[in-house]
Amino acid sequence: MGVQNEAFLADALFQPIKLGKLELANRMAMAPLTRSRADDNLVPTDMVVEYYSQRASVGLIIAEATQVSTTAQGYTNTPGVYTPEQIAAWKKVTDAVHAKGGRIFLQIWHTGRMSHTHFQPDNQAPVAPSAIAANAKTYINGKGYVECSVPRALETAEIAGIVDDFRTAAANAVQAGFDGVEVHGAHGYLLDAFLRDGTNNRTDAYGGSIENRARFLLEVMAAVVKEIGADRVGVRLAPVSPVNDALESNPQPLFEYVVRELEKLHPVYIHVVEGHTGGPRDNAPFDYEALHRLYTGVWMVNNGYSKEMAEEAIRRGSADMVSFGRKMITNPDLPRRFRENKPLNRPFEDASLYGGNGAHGYVDYPELG
């Protein structure tokens, strides 16, 4: 075994890695984390700038899920990237991260049926593949948690417009200084809902067969890749996570087809949530290695990874990068803590993960001295 291989095995998580044209300092990513901290015009605030710049030592920041249009919102105070004010505010974020030597992508999403009429233009019904209500809730200021509204099924002719919304959002993200985008194809949101037979009972070209159900996601990916280049585009998938009432009777062939087709577009990475998001990793049988073998780009994994688990995944070749969620919230300097084997901060018991106007629980987690 050569010196380089020995060093890699001893320090796998902290080896640099190429991501398209980017050289990342380490193989850790900050997972996209909804914090509901945008203002009432869905514009990131100066505190958002501070939050991301604090975490710039991670190899790649994937900024929180961000709406591609006015119809894409499903939660209170989540940011957009479709107005000049939003784009300008995100530019402050990317400038601050880049000033510290960091790299940052933006996750772009459409929440689909995971929404409420309150968030929709003219209080219309949210859109979905089919008019099937989600067994899930969202939060509205002043009302608290409410059941998601019954959606309406998108007309076939409307789908091209949403594909274009994703394309435009990707262009806007690059204009705002992001190094790339991650298309949110997971967690029961619009693109994922089209994939799954539990949420898609359409009879047109976007329903029925696996090929038809995957069509919308693949059209979005093709449009975004064409707009900003494959080396700037990633995608997130969660094959067996049931969050947001995401139901699929036979996920293995579905996601193997999706990854085979994605390989033809060759996005720069595929980001896979293993198991139940934020929960057990073994909630349902699934062969993730079968997916990995179908793709030749950077393979990123997520869900409950410790430092030791992440190192082992990279050493054995089952992942190229590992993303961390709540550990990145509570530890702005997580790469240093991992490298120096320092203890991790505990979550503040008196601070919410979502929402709030002040610094507490958002930008005041301590860093090592």
Rank of each mutant, 00 (worst) to 15 (best):
Gly278Trp: 10
Leu294Trp: 10
Phe348Lys: 11
Arg281Gln: 13
Ala290Asn: 14
Pro280Ala: 15
Gly325Ser: 07
Pro335Cys: 06
Glu311Trp: 00
Met309Trp: 12
Glu311Ala: 11
Leu334Glu: 00
Ser323Lys: 05
Asn357Lys: 13
Thr277Lys: 06
Ser306Pro: 12
Glu312Tyr: 08
Leu291Cys: 08
Asn302Glu: 09
Gly325Glu: 00
His276Lys: 09
Asp350Pro: 05
Met328Arg: 04
Leu353Ala: 05
Tyr288Lys: 03
Ile314Met: 09
Asn345Ile: 07
Ala284Asn: 02
His271Trp: 06
Val322Tyr: 01
Val301Cys: 07
Leu294Arg: 11
Val322Asp: 03
Val301Phe: 05
Gly275His: 04
Glu340Ile: 05
Thr296Asp: 14
Leu262Phe: 08
Gly275Lys: 00
Arg336Leu: 07
Trp299Phe: 13
Glu308Cys: 09
Pro343Asn: 10
Leu344Val: 09
Leu344Tyr: 09
Asp333Cys: 13
Gly356Met: 06
Glu311Asp: 13
Ser323Gly: 14
Val322Pro: 02
Asn357Asp: 15
Leu262Gln: 06
Pro332Lys: 05
Met328Lys: 00
Pro285Lys: 15
Thr330Trp: 07
Val322Lys: 02
Pro285His: 12
Tyr295Phe: 14
His292Phe: 08
Asp282Glu: 11
Met321Asn: 01
Gly317Ile: 07
Lys327Met: 09
Tyr295Trp: 06
Ala359Gly: 08
Phe324Ser: 04
Ser306Thr: 15
Thr296Ile: 08
Arg337Cys: 04
Glu308Phe: 10
Ala359Pro: 02
Glu263Thr: 08
Pro280Thr: 12
Pro343Gln: 14
Arg339Met: 06
Lys327Gly: 04
Arg346Glu: 14
Asn283Cys: 12
Gly304Pro: 00
Ala351Leu: 04
Ser323Glu: 05
Tyr288Arg: 07
Val272Ile: 14
Tyr288Gly: 03
His276Phe: 08
Ser306Phe: 13
Val273Gly: 02
Asn302Val: 05
Ala313Lys: 01
Pro285Glu: 15
His266Cys: 02
Gly275Thr: 14
His360Ala: 15
